[in-house]
Simulated assay, not measured.
Amino acid sequence: MYGHLMDYANFQFYAYPSGTNIPQLMRYFEKQSSNSRGGKILVSFSTDGSGGLSPRNGFFTAYSMLRKQRKLHSIFIRSADDSKQPQDFLAMSNVINAK
């Protein structure tokens, strides 16, 4: 409906239940992308373990899959300050981006 007016939308994928798996995140992403009708959806995770698909459980695998499909526009990290080493997330992203 408003996709043509938005540049990016941070859909809070970390708001889904803890234990979300890769296929579920992909379905959530597809649904939210179709709801935005042209808006660019940012995939996101939280470092505080509050929910969604965590980096330990496959977030960057899903990230890589979406990137290969040319559907990924960017990511959003919620509560990066909760992490003892937030640069680790950026380092993982750089490794994936280099592939």
Score class of each variant (00 low, 15 high):
Arg27Asn: 12
Arg27Asp: 14
Tyr28Ser: 02
Tyr28Thr: 02
Phe29Gly: 04
Phe29Val: 05
Phe29Gln: 06
Phe29Ser: 05
Glu30Cys: 03
Glu30Ile: 02
Glu30Phe: 04
Lys31Thr: 14
Lys31Ala: 13
Lys31His: 14
Lys31Ile: 14
Lys31Gln: 13
Lys31Asn: 13
Gln32Trp: 12
Gln32Ala: 12
Gln32His: 15
Gln32Met: 14
Gln32Cys: 11
Gln32Asp: 13
Ser33Phe: 03
Ser33Glu: 12
Ser34Val: 07
Ser34Gly: 03
Asn35Glu: 14
Asn35Lys: 11
Ser36Met: 14
Arg37Phe: 10
Arg37Leu: 13
Arg37His: 14
Arg37Gln: 15
Gly38Lys: 09
Gly38Met: 09
Gly38Trp: 09
Gly38Ser: 11
Gly39Gln: 03
Gly39Trp: 01
Lys40Asn: 15
Lys40Trp: 05
Lys40His: 14
Lys40Leu: 11
Lys40Cys: 11
Lys40Ile: 08
Lys40Gln: 14
Ile41Gln: 01
Ile41Lys: 01
Ile41Cys: 06
Ile41His: 03
Leu42Asp: 11
Leu42Glu: 11
Leu42Ile: 11
Leu42Cys: 12
Leu42Phe: 15
Val43Ala: 10
Ser44Arg: 07
Ser44Gly: 15
Ser44Leu: 09
Ser44Asp: 15
Phe45Lys: 00
Phe45Asn: 00
Ser46Glu: 07
Ser46Ile: 06
Ser46Trp: 02
Thr47Tyr: 03
Thr47Ile: 03
Thr47Val: 06
Thr47Asp: 10
Asp48Phe: 02
Asp48Thr: 09
Asp48Gln: 12
Asp48Ala: 13
Asp48Met: 08
Gly49Pro: 07
Gly49His: 10
Gly49Gln: 10
Gly49Met: 09
Ser50Glu: 13
Ser50Val: 11
Ser50Leu: 09
Ser50Thr: 12
Ser50Ile: 12
Ser50Trp: 05
Ser50Cys: 10
Ser50Lys: 13
Gly51Thr: 08
Gly51Gln: 07
Gly51Pro: 04
Gly51Asn: 08
Gly51His: 07
Gly51Ala: 10
Gly51Asp: 08
Gly52Asp: 04
Gly52Arg: 00
Leu53Met: 08
Leu53Gln: 00
Leu53Gly: 00
Leu53Lys: 02
Leu53Asn: 01
Leu53Ala: 05
Leu53Val: 06
Leu53His: 04
Ser54Thr: 15
Ser54Ala: 14
Ser54Leu: 11
Pro55Glu: 06
Pro55Ala: 07
Arg56Cys: 05
Arg56Tyr: 08
Arg56Glu: 15
Asn57Ala: 13
Asn57Gly: 07
Gly58Ile: 00
Gly58Ser: 05
Gly58Phe: 01
Gly58Glu: 02
Gly58Asn: 04
Gly58Pro: 02
Gly58Val: 04
Gly58Thr: 03
Phe59Cys: 01
Phe59Pro: 00
Phe59Asn: 01
Phe60Ser: 00
Phe60Tyr: 13
Phe60Asp: 00
Phe60Pro: 02
Phe60Ile: 01
Thr61Leu: 02
Thr61Arg: 03
Thr61Ile: 07
Ala62Leu: 00
